[in-house]
């Protein structure tokens, strides 16, 4: 199936209707690492999995974005979860199953999933 420009507009409208953190009202941010290393190891599917979790949850205050290589290529695919007012947490070696647990526990309840976490802190985005 080929995606047409009007399809992209529909997708965008749908997501903008369900997320408002971009305007500053959000409580959480999910950053999927999309450097060459991340993309080569499956980060596109990781982002898709996070978006599916978001749609299922019906949450309206979560921002999705991407960043470049964090210099930890052997730990990809990676994502950073940041709850408003708390230090960001970097998750590594992600799978769809881990994404579900991280979304349910950390994004929704604020509990860090230590078994998949590398540590607190964030790299420079760029």
């Amino acid at each position: 199936m080929k995606l047409k420009p009007e399809d992209l507009k529909k997708i965008s409208d749908k997501m903008e209707a369900s997320t408002n953190l971009r305007s500053g009202a959000g409580r959480a941010k999910i950053t999927v690492h999309m450097g060459t290393c991340g993309i080569a190891t499956g980060s596109r599917d990781i982002m898709k999995a996070f978006l599916e979790e978001l749609e299922t949850s019906g949450q309206k205050d979560i921002l999705f974005t991407t960043s470049g290589c964090a210099g930890l290529c052997s730990h990809e695919p990676m994502a950073t979860i940041e709850i408003k007012g708390e230090s960001p947490v970097k998750y590594v070696h992600l799978t769809k199953e881990k994404v579900k647990k991280i979304f349910d526990e950390h994004v929704m309840k604020g509990n860090i999933v230590e078994e998949s976490a590398l540590g607190r802190g964030s790299e420079r985005v760029g």
Binding site: M1, K2, L3, L8, E16, M47, K48, L51
Partner: peptide, 27 residues
């Protein structure tokens, strides 16, 4: 899955305008 690529770009960067075209035999 070029559709998924364009969808992910659009969703993660809503402030950027993406134009995508596929033309030709298998479009």
């Amino acid at each position: 899955d070029i559709s998924l690529t364009m969808k992910m770009l659009r969703l993660s960067h809503p402030g950027i305008e993406f134009i995508y075209e596929f033309t030709g035999n298998s479009a």
